[in-house]
Write a protein that binds this DNA or RNA. Sequence first.
DNA 1: GAACGTATGTTACTAGCGGTAACACCAGAG
DNA 2: CTCTGGTGTTACCGCTAGTAACATACGTTC
Lengths: 213, 213
Amino acid sequence: MDTTQRTEQQRSADRRRRELLEAADRVVLRDGPQASMNAIAAEAGITKPILYRHFGDKGGLYAALAKRHTDALLDSLRAALDAPAERRERVEATLDTYLAAIEARPQVYRFLMHPSDGSAGEQGFDVGKHSAPLLRRMGEELAQVIEDRLDLGPGSQQLARVWGHGIVGMMHAAGDWWLGERPCSRAELVRSLADLLWGRLAAAGDKVGGPGF
Amino acid sequence: MDTTQRTEQQRSADRRRRELLEAADRVVLRDGPQASMNAIAAEAGITKPILYRHFGDKGGLYAALAKRHTDALLDSLRAALDAPAERRERVEATLDTYLAAIEARPQVYRFLMHPSDGSAGEQGFDVGKHSAPLLRRMGEELAQVIEDRLDLGPGSQQLARVWGHGIVGMMHAAGDWWLGERPCSRAELVRSLADLLWGRLAAAGDKVGGPGF
DNA sequence: GAACGTATGTTACTAGCGGTAACACCAGAG
DNA sequence: CTCTGGTGTTACCGCTAGTAACATACGTTC
C-alpha cells in the first residue's frame, strides 16, 4: 500500500535517526542527564531543528535513548533470572548483574534513573509517573517472574507485584548508595541483600543491653 | 560579643526568611518541584533578588525547604520505630507511617524525592549525590537502629547499613508504585512488605508445572 | 524530463529560566 | 548626623527548550 515509497527515503531517515541517537548517547555518556539539545546537535554535526524533527521534543529523544539501554539491561537481567540454578543463586546472579551494570556505566545509569525533565507542560500531580520508567519495568517484570514461579497461595498476583517493585527498589537504593560510598565489594553487597531477602532480619536475635547484665 | 545588634535586625531577617519559606512551601505544594523562583517570589509578594539574598541559589532554597519536611517525617518515623512493641509490629507501624505521609501529601513527597535540580554548574559524575537526601537520611537512621538493636554477628555494622538503605529503598519504590496505581489498601501493602522482610520469599515453594503432571 | 513530496539543513527568533549588578530606601547604633 | 545592614526595585546576562521561515538535494510518479 504505502510501502512503495517508504523503502528508500524512510530507510535513510531511520539510519539518520540511529546516528543521531548514537551521537546523543555519546553526549549523555559524557555530560550526564543535563546534556543540552545544542550539545547533542553539535556532537552530531548538525543543528537543533533536525533533532526536534526526529524526536519531537527533548522528552522524545530521551525516551528513545532510554529505551535502548533499558531494553539491554532488562535482557541481561532476564538472562540472570532465567538461569537454571537454585533460587538463591538466581537472585544473587540477578542482583550482581544489575550492580555490575550500574558500576560499569554510572552515567548511563544516572540518566536512566533521573529523567530530570521538568517538562514544563502538564504538571499534574500524578506522582506515579515521574519515577524512572526503568524502575517500573523492572518491577513489573520481576513481579511476573515471581508470580509465575512461586507458589504464594491466595492473593498471589498482588503479593507478587508488591514484592517485585519492593525488591527492585531495594536493589536500586542499595546500589545507588553503594555506588556513591563504595563501603564494600560488590559480592559482599550482593550477599547482604540476599540475606535480607532470605529473612535474616526476622531471624536475628535482639541485642542484650550490655555484657553481664 | 556580637549578640548586641543581632537582636533586632537579624531577628526580623529570620522572620522574613521563615515567611519566604512558607510562601515557597505554598508554591511547591501547588506547582510541584518545577516551581520557579519567579513564581515563589511573586507568591511572597516580592522579587527574585531577595530570595537569592536569603538562600543563595535555588538549591539553597530547596534544601532549606526540604529540611523542614524531612525533619518532620523523620520524627514521625522515629516515633514509630521506637514504640514499645514486637519487632514486626514496629516494622509495620513504621512502614504505615511512611505510606500515610506520602499518601496525605503527594506533592510534598514528590518534591522531597525529586530535587530535579539540574544545577547547571558542577556536573561531576558523582552518582551518589543526585538521589534525594531524604532517602539517604532515612537509610542511615534505619541502619543505626538496626545496628543498635539487632545482634547480627560479625560485620554487623556494614550489614546494617546495607539493610537500612535497602529497606528504605524497598519502602520507597513500593510506595511510589502504590501511590500511582492504588492496587490495594495501605494495610495490605504494609503486610505484604513486612512479609517480604520476614523471609516469605525464601520460604515459598516452587510452583509445579501444571495440574496432574 | 517535469512536478512533487519528503527528507536535510540553515539562520534567526521567542519565551522563559537561574542568577546578578546597580541602585534606592528605611531603621537603628555610634 | 553618619554609617551600617537590612529590604526592595529595575534591568540586565547567558543559558535553555522549542519554533518559524527558508533553501536545497534526492526519490518517486506522471
